[in-house]
Design a protein around this nucleic acid. Structure first.
Length: 600
DNA sequence: ATAGGGTTAG
């Protein structure tokens, strides 16, 4: 028998309605709606209600408005465990507010509000960055002291947090896993994911084979690991063997074949997918875009829209990155017009991707207009613009950007200095470059990475300061890589220095023995110096390694067709006319007094 | 009554 309906007191039903509205916000994330509801909360005097406020806090967090979450939190004079937990989760969510999660936690402890088993998984999400490992260790100690290891969610979250901290963290994660009295599928999946992240696909696979019960996530993790490692035979074998496939499984194989460049196979599987979501479309479109296949990418983008799916920020950013990589301006412009029609797309992130894409495609004027038109510029915006100018040889403009960002109080990072040093190279500012390089760590606390050394070495070498360039190479805290030896070698060629060149090329061959270009360069250097003995030695050396030099290529986009050219290639339909034009240009150059170097 | 961990696009 059902009990007769009892009428709840008016204030209770009002609160129920508000709670319901607030939990609906979890899905849509509508900020205006949230503000309306918050006004209702105030009007009903529920802004201190211990069950309503947590919902407000998480709704604000889901809308990406941490200040709103914080102010809702601060309305409550003495927050309880639930409210603190929601706040910690809200802070852990954003990338800039992670330290606030710990502030909230310490505040919670000071107020003698007791953490529970829900507190720690949230707090562990906030452990990222340089001091993450010690943070995880601290949380681990708390957990042990308060005895929350018995809730399997907590050790699982610990495994995840530990495993995100490199080799040392992975050791701790495995130790945690081994010490658990009981493990569930998530425990296994988390260690396996950690191993994959660390690049140890082999051990991940061993654990996968040892696992008592695998779910779709387990299969997907390993499938994707193989796909990302370029091992598509293994990936496809797992894909066929797995008992159940979902969108993620299909997306992973499609993505794997795209990365391998096997677009036919990728497309075949993409067409066979039982259900496609925004992610799968993004993978396929970006795959085409990255390969410069404009027609396919454009037509697929239209098909996606026709199927009723709205691209989101991630889709747009991903496609734009692919366009930037291949120089696919046509699709980039199509995306730009899409962004222009959608107010939701006017985010800093999207704008940054547009600037990067236009800059890399050589349209610096458009990139510049976009940059100047931005209302809110973040570090990435400044870096993209700076890098864009530097990359295309506009050293002064790049440095102007650097001075402007300093004036506006933006803290530069390592990427900024990479752009600055690159700009100095283009304008031959050796003295300035030395100054900036020295100021990185001293004034900004940025430890120069091997890329920064590479820039400096390149710059000194180009300037003819070969001795200084070699000295810097040897004083680096790392073993020089192929890029560094290569740029030293380039400098030796320009400045006709055979002694240094011999050393550089021998080192280059040590780190990159299968690149035939290196032997060719060595041989050319001997030839130029009239040392025929050395020349034939280099030729023999190359034969011995079976090295092959992949042909370099250049390409240009006209309309929406990308024309690609390689050395000696005569497959282009207009080939004869192109070579005729090249000859004419060559004549003009000679008349203007330019003679190509004998060896380059 | 209340909220939580692992995989895929960036």
């Amino acid at each position: 028998m059902l009990a007769p309906t009892t009428r709840a007191p008016r204030w209770t039903s009002q609160r129920r309605v508000l709670e319901l509205h607030l939990s609906e916000l979890h899905k849509c994330g509508d900020l205006d709606r949230l503000k309306q509801i918050q006004a209702q909360v105030y009007k009903s005097h529920l802004h201190r209600d211990p069950f309503v406020v947590p919902k407000l806090v998480s709704a604000y967090s889901l809308c990406g408005r941490l200040p709103g979450a914080l102010s809702a939190f601060h309305q409550v004079p003495s927050p309880n465990t639930l409210l603190y937990n929601t706040l910690i989760r809200a802070c852990a969510h954003g990338s800039r507010s992670r330290s606030l999660a710990f502030d909230a936690f310490f505040d919670m402890r000071r107020s003698e509000v007791f953490p529970d088993n829900f507190t720690y998984p949230f707090l562990l999400k906030a452990c990222l960055g340089p001091s993450a490992l010690s943070q995880v260790e601290m949380v681990h100690a708390h957990v042990v002291k308060l005895g929350f290891l018995c809730d399997i969610f907590v050790p699982n979250a610990l495994i995840d947090a530990y495993s995100k901290n490199g080799g040392l963290g992975l050791v701790a994660a495995k130790k945690m896993f081994d010490g658990m009295p009981e493990r569930d599928t998530v425990s296994w999946n988390t260690v396996i994911a950690g191993l994959v992240r660390a690049g140890d696909v082999k051990e991940a696979r061993q654990m996968f084979d040892r696992m008592p019960e695998r779910d779709t996530v387990t299969w997907n993790t390993l499938l994707d690991a193989h796909a990302k490692a370029g091992e598509m035979d293994e990936a496809f074998e797992l894909f066929e063997r797995m008992p159940e496939r979902n969108v993620v499984s299909w997306s992973s194989v499609v993505s794997g074949y795209c990365k391998k460049g096997d677009m036919e196979m990728a497309r075949l599987l993409f067409d066979k997918m039982p259900t496609k979501n925004l992610v799968s479309w993004t993978i396929m479109i970006s795959g085409y875009a990255e390969k410069g296949l404009a027609k396919e990418a454009l037509s697929l983008f239209d098909q996606m829209e026709n199927s009723g799916l709205e691209p989101d920020v991630a889709t747009i950013v991903s496609i734009l990155a692919a366009c930037a990589e291949s120089g696919l301006l046509a699709l980039g412009k199509r995306i730009t017009s899409y962004v222009g029609r959608n107010k939701l797309m006017r985010t800093t992130h999207v704008c940054n991707s547009l600037i990067d894409m236009y800059a890399k495609c050589g349209c610096l004027d458009i990139a510049c207009d976009l940059f100047e038109g931005m209302v809110e510029r973040d570090l990435v915006s400044w870096n993209s613009m700076l890098q864009g100018f530097a990359m295309h040889g506009h050293g002064e403009k790049a440095l102007d950007i650097f001075f402007r960002m300093k004036r506006e109080g933006i803290r530069p990072d390592g990427v900024t200095f990479l752009g600055v040093l690159c700009a100095c190279t283009h304008v031959g500012f050796i003295e300035e470059a030395r100054k900036y390089f020295a100021s990185m760590e001293r004034d900004y606390g940025i430890v120069p990475q091997i890329e920064h050394y590479g820039c400096m070495i390149d710059l000194l070498g180009r300037g003819g300061l070969l001795k200084e360039a070699f000295d810097l190479t040897k004083s680096m805290p790392w073993e020089p890589n192929a890029i560094i030896w290569g740029s030293l070698l380039g400098a030796c060629r320009v400045h006709n220095n055979v002694e240094f060149a011999e050393e550089a090329v021998n080192e280059l061959i040590k780190v990159e023995p299968s690149d035939a270009g290196n032997y060719a360069i060595l041989s050319n250097i001997y030839a130029a110096a009239g040392r025929w003995d050395g020349m034939s030695k280099a030729r023999v050396q190359m034969k011995g390694t079976g090295a092959q030099k992949p042909a370099g290529s250049s390409w240009i986009e006209l309309g929406d067709v990308v024309h690609e050219f390689t050395v000696g290639d005569r497959t282009h339909p207009e080939s004869d006319r192109i070579f005729m034009m090249l000859d004419r240009i060559g004549e003009h150059l000679k008349k203007a007094g330019y003679f190509p170097r004998a060896y380059s």
